[in-house]
């Protein structure tokens, strides 16, 4: 009797134990999606900042017509890459400091839709050409002055002819930092000169010259410089130049 009981109990245990063995045999994500967001006017990649800048929006429509969006943040030079995606059909667009690729009017109707529907598999490249709100160009390289400050010359122009995206420029800044990840999210405000309000708006179309604040910069190191400007639209994202390095002896 006892023997029978034990054998039943044992077989039950074994049965219960074996059912726990579940291997997740679905292949790990190995699909790469990459690309560049470029300025339609200049053909160069659109500079941005990580976190509060360009990001790629994926809507995977293989399974659902109303999926939760998945985002990929772009690098600060405007390229992006994700190497751990599942293959699938995606509607892909980009968000950032440029004329929105998908626009909705006040009644909720989609009036512009430049998103791309792509079968993402293996290594897929999806590029976007956009009109930035503001285009900032260097006028020469930043100059290290005799008094230890740095002077920067640049020009801010409109990146789009669409009047709906030509709000007043609210802030212009020459961001300075001691590493090359420099921008509104990461700068040293002791040295960074800024313009705001009317002074910022007056930079449109004119060559602007700004010099670092706080006297001579500490020596024997490099500083990284980048000009940013933003206008009063949406989440107030900045447009940027690329990063330039100034070595201080």
């Amino acid at each position: 009797m006892k023997k029978l009981f034990y054998s039943i109990a044992l077989s039950a245990l074994v049965a219960a134990g074996s059912s726990c063995k579940k291997t997740d045999n679905y292949a790990a994500p190995d699909v790469t999606l990459k690309g560049t967001v470029t300025d339609a006017g200049t053909g160069k990649s659109l500079q941005t900042e990580q976190g509060s800048g360009t990001r790629i929006k994926l809507l995977e429509i293989s399974w659902s017509a109303n999926p939760t969006p998945f985002y990929i943040s772009s690098y600060q030079d405007g390229t992006y890459q994700n190497t751990k995606l599942f293959a699938g059909k995606n509607v892909i667009s980009a968000e950032g400091a440029f004329v929105p690729l998908v626009q909705v009017d006040a009644s909720g109707k989609t009036i512009v839709d430049k998103s791309q529907t792509v079968d993402v598999k293996d290594v897929t490249t999806v590029n976007f050409s956009v009109e930035p709100f503001l285009r900032i160009e260097w006028i020469g390289d930043p100059v290290l002055n005799a008094d230890g400050t740095i002077t920067t010359k640049f020009k801010v122009t409109r990146g789009t002819a669409n009047p709906d995206f030509q709000q007043n420029v609210s802030d212009v800044a020459v961001f300075i930092n001691s590493n090359n990840y420099v921008g509104n999210n990461n700068y040293d405000n002791r040295y960074t000169p800024k313009l705001s309000g009317d002074a910022a708006n007056a930079t449109i179309g004119a060559t602007t010259t700004l010099t670092t604040l706080g006297g001579a910069l500490p020596g024997k190191r490099s500083y990284f410089i980048r000009v940013g400007a933003k206008m009063q639209y949406g989440l107030n994202y900045y447009n940027y130049t690329d990063v330039k390095e100034v070595k201080i002896p």
């Binding site: 909705v104 009017d105 006040a106 009644s107 909720g108 009063q232 639209y233 989440l235 107030n236």
Partner: peptide
């Protein structure tokens, strides 16, 4: 406010 989000039925 500067931020806008409108849904498909025109609700802001």
């Amino acid at each position: 406010n500067q931020i806008s989000l409108v849904d498909g039925s025109g609700n802001r």
